[in-house]
């Protein structure tokens, strides 16, 4: 039965020792969506991404991407399908320059990494510069990534994911540690990527105020389980959410 869901998750479970990090999660995403998963720290947001991208093995349940069962595939095989992720803590190449960081993602996407004899500096120049422009790191192109400011590292982190030219993008707290202005800029960029490139984006966030202006659909995780789902307005009005997440007594 064909459907137009780019991502479909059925009865996903994962425990670490006695702790249930993901509990019977069912989730669907349509192509072109910009949605968010929210929940307090420890709600299981990162674990959820780790299960979808093959970093952790699932205990039970299935993950379908474009109708294909990708449950427990290796991370690199999942990435090859067009699923990219950006990490909460910037996860970049510290001794390479910003330019080299991004070029690595692009060369991988272009399947040129088994080229042994063409100098890498002669490849993917245009694409790399374009992406540096998009992300606003043009001037820092030749700065060693380890020496970039925290905000720039975070931006580079996002650029690495974009360099994969994904169809589906997971962003784990893309604005963590950013100033209010940087947060706004980053979220505008995320929105732009969604609107202009048609990228399907799922991001996590613990700060609710960030989410409300941008995501079309919200899912609230608490102790590994989905407790609410809907438009931002619906979720905000949900009594359960107010209780466990906003700390408001009903």
């Amino acid at each position: 039965m064909p459907d137009d869901f780019i991502l479909k998750i059925e009865n996903l479970n994962k425990s670490f020792g006695g702790v249930k990090a993901t509990s019977n999660v069912n989730y669907k995403m349509k192509s072109g969506e910009l949605s968010a998963i929210i929940g307090p720290n420890g709600a299981g947001k990162s674990t959820f991404f780790n299960l979808l991208t093959g970093f952790h093995r699932v205990d039970s349940g299935s993950v379908f991407y474009k109708g294909r069962d990708i449950t427990n595939w290796h991370p690199h095989s999942i990435a090859r399908l067009g699923i990219a992720r950006a990490f909460q803590v910037s996860n970049i190449y510290h001794t390479l320059t910003a330019y080299e960081n991004i070029r690595q993602a692009i060369l991988t996407q272009q399947k040129k990494t088994l080229n042994f004899f063409t100098p890498a500096r002669k490849l993917a120049e245009r694409e790399t510069m374009e992406l540096l422009d998009t992300i606003g790191l043009h001037e820092q192109a030749h700065v060693t990534a380890g020496n970039l400011s925290q905000g720039d590292k975070k931006r580079l982190e996002l650029a690495l994911a974009l360099g994969c030219r994904p169809d589906l993008l997971f962003l784990d707290e893309p604005t963590a540690g950013m100033s209010a202005e940087e947060t706004h800029d980053t979220m505008m960029l995320v929105k732009k990527l969604n609107m202009e490139l048609g990228l399907t984006i799922l991001f996590t966030e613990h700060d609710m105020s960030v989410v409300f202006g941008y995501a079309q659909r919200l899912t609230v995780l608490h102790l590994g389980a989905i407790i609410s789902e809907g438009t931002p307005a619906e979720v905000r009005a949900d009594e359960n959410v107010q209780k466990v997440y906003l700390g408001v007594e009903p």
């Binding site: 090859r80 970049i92 070029r103 690595q104």
Partner: peptide, 18 residues
């Protein structure tokens, strides 16, 4: 450069598709 990437951060390299 893929080798340097693996040296710097093998897990990230995996998530790029290597």
């Amino acid at each position: 450069y893929t080798m340097r990437s693996i040296r710097d951060n093998d897990s990230r390299t995996r998530f790029l598709g290597i």
